[in-house]
Design a protein around this nucleic acid. Sequence first.
DNA 1: CGTTCATATTGATGGTTGTCGATGTATTGA
DNA 2: TCAATACATCGACAACCATCAATATGAACG
Lengths: 118, 118
Amino acid sequence: MSKSELTLTPVETVACCSPLVREPLSADRADRVVPLLKALADPVRLRLVSIVAASEGGEACVCDLNDAFDLSQPTISHHLKVLHEAGLLDRTKRGVWVYYAVRRDVLADVATLIGGSA
Amino acid sequence: MSKSELTLTPVETVACCSPLVREPLSADRADRVVPLLKALADPVRLRLVSIVAASEGGEACVCDLNDAFDLSQPTISHHLKVLHEAGLLDRTKRGVWVYYAVRRDVLADVATLIGGSA
DNA sequence: CGTTCATATTGATGGTTGTCGATGTATTGA
DNA sequence: TCAATACATCGACAACCATCAATATGAACG
């Protein structure tokens, strides 16, 4: 195991290696991949990712996302923070509004790890 | 929404529909997909899936899986049950031993939903 | 039968997480 | 400078979850 691998972020880890079904996942790699899966493993967050990804221009304003759920604004803000900190959503502030965009490359890397189609 | 869609299991749900990034995921579909992601979103379970998938013949005995972790036997048994009930692992009893095998089709369907490469 | 071995179940416990109301921060416009 | 709007943070609480020790189940073998 290289030293650089020890310092990989979750996003870097998921992008760098063989799919699940090829060879056993090490504990270290599992620990770095799991935050991404945990971030997706919530119905609200999964829908948030989907709504943002399917939006015009691939990004969505928080104000629109709030309206899409029957949840308080702090709760949506919390979920967006989780997705952002996991590396799945980019965050851009324009004026008073905040826009989130899906990192499709990360999503694709997670998919490759799980499905091993590549 | 058809009546049959209402009765889909998580595994059926994830196999039937467009990827995340194509169109917004409904709350119903999210609720049925999330159990699969939750099952994978644990470092021990992710490694279990990987170890089983990478094993000879695509299956592994529980006794071998126990040895691969520094955890109690009931804990491994619990994680295997979660993966089995989510539909990710098949379970076969032969004599005293129990073998688990990964359902690669389910894994591939989850990957397609996430990555949208198809 | 009774023992041994492989696996599952139960019950308890400490830690994590989703949610909310209240409050804070920052930007815009009057 | 004041008010309004958009979003984030804080603190609290209930629900969930990973883990273990103890125990149960069940198959193979003397």
